[in-house]
Design a protein around this nucleic acid. Structure first.
Lengths: 243, 243
DNA sequence: GACAATAATATTGTTAACAATTTTGCGTGC
DNA sequence: GCACGCAAAATTGTTAACAATATTATTGTC
């Protein structure tokens, strides 16, 4: 999951393994809509932009394709994924199936420490919302759900949900309404109340309602393709200017 | 998911894209325990065995690692995954969380056609069991669960469960008791009855019971590492015998 | 002027060679 | 006999060049 801190704090220290750095930067760019859905990703351009070999870009593509964030077409190349409305519905349906169970488990295993963990996260969400940092708000909103998954203690669920949340972020970034009525943070407050209540049925119901609400705020609109200028998108100049 | 037909029917026609073929063969070998947990996978050996370049083996490794069927250690190489008992428990716990929901949906959306689909599959399971084809029985047992997931119509759930079932197959292959009391097929019969009943709670309860039963049949035992003779494991000779 | 065939370009797919790292084997000293 | 260190081998990581494929531009024809 992308960190919600300064987007690019890791760029400075070149010793942080480049593989994950590239994956993270492309993730950020996709979630930030600097890379728009449908956009072609040319291997050599990206390789020059990041100053690495094509092979590494290729490996990164496999990871991103696995997360359904890009589409890999044989002999044609890689394209930013364009999740359909139907896909979006399925993703949120799947999330509801899983996160209902998460809410149940968290509600029945609540401790004061865990409650504080959640409250502390909610504070960060509110801060981001107050500061008008929309991108951080989206990412923190995802991390809220991830935090709940982590509290179940089941790593399998946590990892799967991480992928699903990432995908959701892309979907939300694509389909959110122009004037984002971002009420997620208040819904998370209500979710916390339900979790503190200790009733698994109530918690699950609240979770379902929340996820349905997110889905219902989506809006059908095809984003228009833009020009592919990696240098400006990633805020850097190519390492070598070939002939 | 590995097909339960003749294991190797696809070997003959060399036109079926080699990438997936290699993935499938390694999958079969892992599930078949010809490749034992902890075994080192040397890139060049496999490349020669399959007559492809190391790059392709590397890409295949990424896929398998993503499915948690192998471990990729930087500068050290690839090793067949060794799921711990704890991991096994988490996998089946995650499956119960998801498949409870699957059972609910299938129970409430049953049609005569779907019932026939399930019955037809169960017939194949019984046949494999009757023939004493243990490997086919394991794979068909997994495909039974996958079939139910497909009937929910949610591709996201289906794909995730496919990965989880694959992982379960490795776990079962690793930890099953020496004298496998393979009662899965009869449990599937009972599951079908519950699904036909139409009561989602009953169906979910039966699914939970079934998955717990599988987990409880597991047995702690560390398999001992064997020698890595790919040529014999995959039943073929290396293409080129370098100096 | 529009369409089709063809050449030129761009891009992906693949291979082989080289560099870096780890593992193994051997010899030395204690 | 055992541990340590060094050298040799094996293995992974990386790069660059080449081949195959797809895309674009051009030319010719109707």
């Amino acid at each position: 999951m992308a960190k919600a801190e300064d987007s690019g704090a890791y760029k400075g220290s070149g010793k942080l393994r480049p593989e994950e750095m590239i994956y993270q930067e492309m993730l950020d760019a996709i979630l930030d809509r600097r890379l728009e859905p449908g956009m072609k990703l040319v291997e050599e351009d990206l390789a020059k932009t990041f100053g690495v070999s094509r092979a590494r870009i290729r490996a990164t593509f496999l990871q991103l394709a696995h997360d359904k964030l890009i589409n890999l077409v044989p002999n044609r190349g890689a394209f930013i994924a364009e999740p359909t409305i139907n896909e979006a519905i399925e993703v949120f349906s799947a999330r509801r199936m899983i996160e209902d169970g998460v809410a149940r488990k968290v509600a029945t295993s609540m401790t004061p420490e865990r409650a504080d963990q959640i409250r502390s996260h909610l504070a960060r969400e509110h801060a981001a919302h107050h500061d008008g940092d929309h991108r951080a708000a989206i990412i923190l909103s995802g991390e809220f759900h991830l935090l709940l998954a982590r509290l179940t203690g089941n790593l399998v669920i946590e990892e799967f949900l991480e992928r699903l949340i990432l995908r959701s972020s892309l979907i939300i970034a694509m389909y959110e309404s122009p004037q984002p009525v971002d009420c997620s943070h208040s819904e998370h407050d209500r979710l916390l109340d339900a979790l503190l209540g200790g009733d698994p049925d109530v918690a699950a119901a609240e979770m379902s309602r929340h996820l349905d609400a997110i889905r219902d705020r989506l809006q059908l609109q095809r984003p228009k393709p833009g020009k592919t200028d990696f240098a400006s998108i990633f805020g850097r100049t190519p390492r070598s200017e070939a002939s």
